[in-house]
Design a protein around this nucleic acid. Sequence first.
DNA 1: ATTATTGTGCTATTCTATGTATAACAATAA
DNA 2: TTATTGTTATACATAGAATAGCACAATAAT
Lengths: 122, 122
Amino acid sequence: MIIEIDFNSDEAIYVQLCNQIIMGIATDQLKVGETLPSVRQLADTIGINMHTVNKAYSVLKQEGFLTIDRRRGAVISIDADRIRALEEMKRELLVVLARGCCRNISREEVHALIDEIFDEYK
Amino acid sequence: MIIEIDFNSDEAIYVQLCNQIIMGIATDQLKVGETLPSVRQLADTIGINMHTVNKAYSVLKQEGFLTIDRRRGAVISIDADRIRALEEMKRELLVVLARGCCRNISREEVHALIDEIFDEYK
DNA sequence: ATTATTGTGCTATTCTATGTATAACAATAA
DNA sequence: TTATTGTTATACATAGAATAGCACAATAAT
């Protein structure tokens, strides 16, 4: 899987890494059970520090997107807490949709956008 | 309009302020043409520094949610660049929906969530 | 068994963002 | 005239982000 970091972004590198990996899972480019590269390996590939990758992995572990096994390394394994996920999603959507609503983006346009994105996801 | 800041949040105070004001516009609690309190006044009400409020207002001005008039102060006035707003919304939704998709949140559940939120908005 | 690689922990440093604090200025309102 | 406004500038303290180097025990590869 190709990971691209925007070093000019105001978003932290480890956050970008987390988001790209999560989007990789959503698009089925990364499948449950697959292993990610070691922190040193991925850091070398991207050209960043080992600890930055380690932080991303730690966050993903904390959020329940992967487990870290001594033997196999970082393994994709979803801990699907649907209730918490729905609550979190609503909190985030409230902010995102407010911006759109102010710009006169209609309910239908958002629905279309959702479908468009879901078609790319599994 | 009531503004509540969570000082234990990891989100910056000025970002919370921006989001609450934008959500205030979306829920029609703040209407176009209305004026916001002066930076010193609002800072005093919330119990934060003047510059923190000023930064929030500056960001909102930059993003096109209000204009700042010497005479009237900060006035709500939406600069509706729909195309840019749609692009920005898609970028944000890609990240939010990926998290939900991994947690097996269905397309229909998201649509329901969108409707639920839009019912609160204008 | 030896070597290499792994995740993890620790300390340290640099840089940036955030929030607070004063002070000052010109423009406007009272 | 006086008070308040938005704005700008500087300074300081704190926290987060990213890098760097070192070390350790556990595992994999040879």
